[in-house]
């Protein structure tokens, strides 16, 4: 207990500060609450802009329609497959790459610096959009889910996070395993991976969220709309019609009446997986990012 806690000016500051912080953090939630409220409102109330932060004329109609929309459900499934493929294959490549690179300092990997720079350079420089687009065309990956998965499997930043974590593992564990006749692969998967589960969970979360949210690759690499992942579908659905109207949607436009609640329901369901995993993994990512970012 510090002395200054008792001074009057600090107490006044404390009350204002806490109020300010609470209001600010609620502002972070406001758009989600708004979209949820619209999605749960009656079509006429939403179309007439009567809904702000609480549903008006509560109904689940928009959710019934959205969940009955087979195109939407299938896009949801494609996104799920994409996430599973990217997390599993991406994590496999990440640990396989990070393990040898974590041995550079101990001299276990000759020429390791070269390989480290090989990966780091991709963080510094890239071919950009158009060469990547031509590459996917030439590889014949257009309209394939692999066009969405393969380019994102190696993320150098994740490899760095992983290898920084591997370095904190006591060498004795590795030596004991090698003594017992286990090779490096055994050591990696029997010792390193189980010990690194928090870091693996963190990186998996980052991959999963990134893949779930990715939409642009779907837009340019996939022309058959029934193969679009959820985010690409949402992007086409939401942004384009509203943009062409420039927000000057007239209240009379009857078509918009039911559109708006359904759009909101689609947005909310699209965000739901992230909202759902978020609280459970929060502590992991805080640990993970601090380990990777501010290393002593």
């Amino acid at each position: 207990m510090y002395m200054y806690h008792k001074t009057k000016s600090y107490r006044v500051f404390y009350v204002f500060n806490l109020t300010f912080l609470l209001v600010t953090s609620l502002v972070c939630l406001l758009p989600i609450i708004h979209v949820l409220s619209v999605s749960l409102s009656s079509a006429s109330a939403a179309g007439a802009n009567m809904v702000s932060l609480w549903p008006v004329g509560f109904t689940l109609e928009s959710y019934k329609q959205t969940l009955g929309n087979s195109a939407y459900i299938s896009a949801f499934g494609i996104s799920a497959i994409r996430v599973v493929l990217s997390v599993s294959l991406g994590m496999l490549v990440t640990v396989l790459t990070a393990y040898p690179l974590s041995k550079i300092d101990s001299g276990g990997l000759k020429g390791g610096k070269f390989f480290a720079w090989y990966f780091v350079f991709t963080m510094l420089f890239s071919g950009g959009l158009i060469p990547a687009y031509i590459l996917i065309q030439r590889l014949g990956l257009m309209n394939s889910i692999w066009a969405l998965v393969l380019p994102g499997l190696v993320v150098s930043w994740n490899i760095i996070l992983m290898l920084n974590f591997f370095r904190t593992i006591p060498r004795e564990l590795e030596e004991a395993s090698l003594m017992d006749g286990g090779g490096h692969l055994t050591t990696l998967f029997r010792i390193y991976v189980p010990v690194s589960l928090p870091a693996i969970a963190t990186i998996s979360l980052f991959i999963a969220v990134g893949q779930w949210n990715a939409w642009f690759d779907g837009l340019i690499y996939i022309s058959e709309q029934h193969k679009w992942p959820m985010s690409t579908m949402l992007q086409a659905l939401i942004a384009l019609p509203l943009q062409s109207n420039l927000g000057t949607i007239t209240g009379e436009d009857a078509a918009n009446f039911s559109e708006r609640t359904i759009k909101s329901a689609k947005i909310f369901i699209g965000a739901l997986p992230i909202l759902a995993v978020y609280p459970f993994l929060q502590r992991f990512f805080i640990n993970g990012i601090v380990v990777g970012a501010v290393k002593e």
Binding site: P31, N213, W215, Q235, G247, I267, Y278
Partner: peptide
């Protein structure tokens, strides 16, 4: 939380919230 939501989602919400109506 907002860090983890995509600009598709947030863009959709913002376009709606910031329109003239």
């Amino acid at each position: 939380l907002p860090h983890f939501l995509s600009w598709v989602i947030l863009g959709g919400i913002l376009l709606d919230m910031l329109s003239s109506q």
